[in-house]
Design a protein around this nucleic acid. Structure first.
Lengths: 219, 219
DNA sequence: ATTAATTTTTAAGTAAGCTTAAAAATTTTT
DNA sequence: AAAAATTTTTAAGCTTACTTAAAAATTAAT
């Protein structure tokens, strides 16, 4: 299967998780930086390969086979991130960019070697769960988006999710890192953005869902 | 530049080194497993990109730009081999196969990180020299092919070159490994093959130049 | 030095993965 | 509930990297 196909099913999987199943071709097209027409074409093609179910004007739905493929690619991506992060002095953003390419050129054999070397980690450096060799995510996710956090409470950062370099630079600068503690002291939300005061720093989170901080309550 | 282009210039470079400049399209086609017609087409295209000089019916010659590209890809390939060999319990053949894919998806930045991590090695696990970041091979090669070795002399294996799994399995089985010592006790050569008795083991080397053992005299 | 064999080139065609433009359907706004 | 805006789909076309088949040139054999 081609790189284009792997990225397509991955985009559907990620969009499905994130935007509550808004996986219409346009959404996928935007995620991948291709035209809507190309996304529709590809969707039809992948339906014939039993990777997804396609019905005109409906959201795209991965089949079991498609989901498996997506999770396989995601596994490789996150294992590469974990490996590069451990070995080299590279930013989260750089690591993500390299993994984005390497993920498509990695045999299951090599992926398993990397996983074994790292002690079969359950999370990558962003806090994202790493599927196991069977494509299962065994850890259950109790995290919420920071924009939904409550005033006065303390949280632990569980994931930094983004494709955007600025976002990771911003996080690094503000001590926003997987595992770090966070006190939400004030917050204001409207439809376009969320303004949060944490650890005496005001930060603005836009609501376009391209960059998200996930947190867990600190009990 | 595409994977196809990177592989094409790499094939010319390798063939040029090996077969004394028999870099006509047919040779490259065979190396890459594509048709002669495809190789001619690609050659013409790459000439317009100043990667090689093309004259009808003549061997293909890389320009400086083309040579640089080939060496850049070869550098990445050999760095990956060195890294995977060091970290994981994988055969030389498996390592080669993974590196063949990873080499095209590796930024210079990452290549330099790998090199630094390994202490800027000058050779990969096959004994092949690793070009530096500028694309220069600073080590001079005094090795000869085992099929040209002389009876009675002792040699040190300096390179194992092949795309063939059988070859590496054969080498592993017979203690033929980078750095190992070798005594050539008897030898017989004709146009098709070379028969050599080393360390009391008879081995046959075919002369199709797809698998070669290089050695240095042991002074 | 011809003839035969091989290689290279040309020509025409294909599949993948895109593009833009316009038609059709859906969704949002008023 | 109509009108306006947006999204999806269809259609036609492009580029890359191949293919096969046949013509042209080169190389090898007699």
């Amino acid at each position: 299967m081609s790189v284009a196909i792997e990225n397509f099913v991955k985009a559907i999987y990620k969009n499905g998780k994130r935007d509550n199943n808004d996986t219409k071709p346009g959404n996928i097209a935007k995620e991948l930086g291709i035209s809507n027409a190309a996304a529709t074409d590809m969707a039809k093609k992948l339906a014939t390969k039993d990777l997804l179910n396609y019905e005109k004007y409906q959201p795209l739905q991965l089949t079991e086979k498609g989901t498996k493929m997506a999770l396989s690619v995601i596994r490789k991506h996150r294992l590469w991130e974990a490996l590069l992060f451990k070995m080299f002095d590279m930013s989260l953003h750089d690591i993500h960019r390299e993994a984005e390419l390497l993920e498509h050129q990695t045999s299951n054999f090599l992926a398993d070697k990397i996983s074994e070397y790292l002690g079969n980690p359950k999370f990558d450096p962003h806090g994202d769960p790493i599927p196991n060799a069977k494509g299962e995510i065994t850890t259950k996710d109790t995290s919420i988006q920071l924009s939904n956090a409550e005033e006065g409470k303390t949280y632990i950062i569980s994931r930094l999710m983004s494709d955007d370099k600025e976002f990771f630079d911003f996080c690094a600068l503000n001590g926003l890192k997987y595992g770090n503690t966070l006190v939400v002291s004030k917050q204001f939300t409207n439809n376009k953005m969320t303004q949060i005061l944490i650890n005496n720093n005001t930060i603005l989170l836009n609501q376009d869902f391209t960059s998200i901080i996930y947190v867990n309550e600190n009990h």
